[in-house]
Amino acid sequence: MDIIHPLDRYLRTDRLPHIWCPGCGIGIVISAMLRAIDRHISEGHFTQDDVATVSGIGCTARATLYLNFDSAHVIHGRAIPFAIGLKVIKPNLKVIVIGGDGDIAAIGGNHLLHSARRNMDITVIMVNNMVYGMTGGQVAPTTPMKVYTTTTPYGNLEYPLNLIKLVSSLNTNYVARASVTHPHLIERYIYNALSRDGFSFIEVISICPEVFGRHIGFRNPVELFNKLKSMIKFKAKPSIDESDIVWGKEIVLGEYVNEYKSGFIKLLYGS
């Protein structure tokens, strides 16, 4: 494999270019994740062979196909239990679950909840584009109200799920929200998540110009990017109360939970 780009050593470059549409935010998240991992590796915290990435089904889940780690691309919604199986048998692995909002919050929601409750020592990165992308633009549990999708042709009647609030209510060590408009923050939060035991959850607000953008009238990636950027607020210590996503108005980024309790693995095996 030819290494050209500085992150190429972490990629199966023979499979590039990837399948994501032009301007899709997933690539930005993966790029930031790889820089965070690279920083840990260069600081000697772990090696490339210690990293395991697991994903379910969906656009984001395709990430594992391109990653040059031990990787698993399993079934819809079930990446977290697979990851737990890995982690309890090989506690030295840094196990990262990558998925979209459909994969992690809808079909996989129950596993998210219970792995957070266990403070299981895995990192879950949820790329939230507020829509089902791969299947062509259906409503997601994260879709804002009133938005048109192919399965809510008269507008979405449901309140969107606030994952930050949900996961923060559980016994977890780290909850943060980043956005593809601020790649440095994604990198920093993933780096921080990988620096601790226990469960860590990072929601990355992303853009899907092809589907979500089309639904809301921002088909152009740059326009959608700038629209999202206009809503973003960063806070060093945001409160859970301000974590609701109000599309068009305000999306607050920051580290909502930042603790260092013992994770499940320490309870299982001792220190």
């Binding site: 780009h5 997933i26 930005i28 990198e187």
Partner: peptide, 11 residues
Amino acid sequence: CEYICPDFAIY
């Protein structure tokens, strides 16, 4: 540009 590129195309 490198950080925002979703395609690992620019560095």
